[in-house]
Design a protein around this nucleic acid. Structure first.
Length: 474
RNA sequence: GGAGAGGUGGCAGAGUGGUCGAAUGCGCCGCACUCGAAAUGCGGUUUACGGGCAACCGUAACGUGGGUUCGAAUCCCACCCUCUCCGCCA
């Protein structure tokens, strides 16, 4: 969410920043709506003040038993008159909810040092770590040799469809070992507090981190308590109430037309539906929503191992084979809530925390600074970590680490009270993967594969593997 | 899921239609008293938005959203949340 006052103060800067994201300037439209809204607000407030005054005058007389005198009634009549004008202004003011909606749909402004570009081709490589291994055989795709090691796509597809997998035996163990190792490292070495958060969340929660209102197509939702019989009851009672007992076909047709619209508006009822989190960033960041956090406790560093659910509506056809892009996957997420002046340093710390995992596993990777066109909605600055995948002969995203500035904090109303200052300020929020467990599994499989189709388990995972040193084809 | 109780300022807790943004107590801040501290006394102590150079003024907020009314913390409806008991369940 953007601060309307900063747009008022410097509309050119706002438009210039949007332009870097490849968006048209919007300040003129915003300021116009803002001006209209404020005028109406001032008008409504003075009408309310007037009504309050008249009503108090009447009340005073009525309290003295003079409620029926001519004087009293004149106050009453005048008050009704003002109330009428007020409701008029209020309904016009309501139409200016548009301004909120408009602002809520505008992405965060890129930080000054973010390179400009339209898509991932303009991302800038910052550094590389490790050297891709030299294979004395042609490295295989994990989707090809994985099934013999317990990566079961077929059974999963039979019960859940495409983009699901079941991990079995040593494969499941390796996946769990990776997750435990990551979590232990983030809590034990990097100062993150382990959290086991809700996986189902409300609309407002997703609005807070920026997934709503714009990206609901990427999400799964479920209902908390909605049944077909409830819907049927509602249909029937509405039918009788609106149409009556007769059989007027014209009325019936109109009824069903209206009713269909009304019903579909109500099924995804914001009160009754819950969304499956697409990332634990949502749950962890919202831990401070609507709070004033004590200055002394900052920064708050959270980590969680959770399943993530994504419908990937916009990416049909991409990575359809293999374990790279699933509707359900696990991820160890990192979130930091901090003071504005600390967020750049927290960003670095978070990167170090994520990179440490790749280094410990001996997986070659590179660090990319995303350009303006490739960043997510809420981010002001993002680094991606890309891991080497021998079968694809390229680096693929395995972690994304973003500084969101105060963008999410505004949407969540998350603040802190700086030591020695009177008021409150918005916090800064950061999030990053540390790491995506599924993709790390893929990277381990491919980078540690042997000519005979087996995979050697990285040394660092030994404490988690119960003696298994190698996955062998069955 | 059933029955009941309840949601008021940092906390506790009054307030059932008319200067109630809200008594009182605790906490917190300042001042006085004191060699110092405690105790005591006095004063202050919410947030958001709008207007104004400013002092300041106005409006809104008593879980949330509607409604009734000239006027709602107070009455009505729906929802959310908390607590107690019962049932069910990993």
């Amino acid at each position: 969410m953007h601060d309307i006052r900063s747009i008022r103060d410097n509309p050119q800067a706002f438009d210039a920043a949007l332009a870097r994201r490849g968006l048209d300037g919007m300040s003129a439209q915003i300021l116009d709506l803002d001006k209209q809204k404020r005028e109406l607000q001032t008008e409504a407030e003075s009408l309310r003040a007037e009504r309050k005054r008249l009503s108090a005058c009447f009340g005073q007389l009525a309290g003295q038993g003079q409620g029926h005198t001519e004087e009293a009634l004149s106050f009453k009549t005048a008050s009704v008159d003002v109330a009428q004008k007020l409701s008029d202004v209020e309904s016009r003011l309501e139409a200016h909810q548009d301004l909120e909606d408009l602002l809520a749909a505008i992405p965060n402004l890129p930080a000054a040092d973010v390179p400009e570009g339209a898509d991932e081709h303009a991302n800038v490589e910052v550094s590389r770590w490790g050297t891709p291994r030299n294979f004395d055989f042609a490295p295989q795709d994990h989707a090809d040799f994985g099934p013999a090691l317990g990566l079961d796509f077929e059974s999963a597809a039979a019960m859940s469809g495409a983009r699901f997998a079941a991990l079995r035996g040593g494969m499941a163990r390796l996946h769990r070992a990776l997750a435990q190792f990551m979590l232990d490292t983030q809590t034990g070495q990097n100062g993150y507090e382990e959290v086991n958060p809700p996986l189902l969340v409300r609309d407002a929660t997703l609005y807070g981190t920026g997934q709503l209102p714009k990206f609901e197509d990427d999400l799964f939702w479920t209902t908390k308590r909605f049944s077909k019989s409830e819907l049927a009851d509602k249909f029937y009672s509405d039918f009788v109430r609106k149409v009556g007992e007769g059989w007027d076909m014209e009325k019936m047709r109109n009824f069903f037309k209206d009713q269909a619209e009304e019903t579909f508006k109500e099924i995804p009822d914001p009160i009754d539906r819950l969304w499956l989190i697409p990332t634990a960033e949502v749950s962890l960041t919202n831990l401070v929503r609507e709070q004033i956090v004590a200055d002394a406790t900052l920064p708050l560093r959270f980590t969680a191992l959770t399943p993530c659910f994504r419908s990937e509506a916009g990416s049909a056809g991409r990575d359809t084979r293999g374990f790279i892009r699933q509707h359900q996957f696990e991820k160890v997420e990192l979130v930091s809530i901090c003071r504005p002046e600390d967020s750049a340093a927290e960003h670095e710390h978070m990167l170090t925390s994520a990179e440490g995992i790749l280094q410990a596993l001996g997986l070659p990777y590179r660090k990319m600074l995303l350009c303006t066109g490739d960043m997510g909605f809420s981010a002001a600055k993002t680094y991606d970590l890309e891991v080497w995948l021998p079968s694809q002969n390229c680096y693929r995203e395995i972690s994304s680490v973003s500084n969101c500035g105060e963008f999410q904090a505004r949407r969540m109303n998350a603040r802190y009270r700086p030591e020695g200052e009177k008021g409150t300020r918005f916090l800064h929020t950061l999030n990053g993967s540390g790491l995506a467990v599924g993709r790390t599994l893929v990277a381990v499989l491919e980078n540690y594969q042997q000519a005979d189709g087996s995979v050697i388990v990285p040394e660092i995972l030994a404490p988690y593997m119960g003696g298994i040193k190698q996955l062998t084809p069955r």
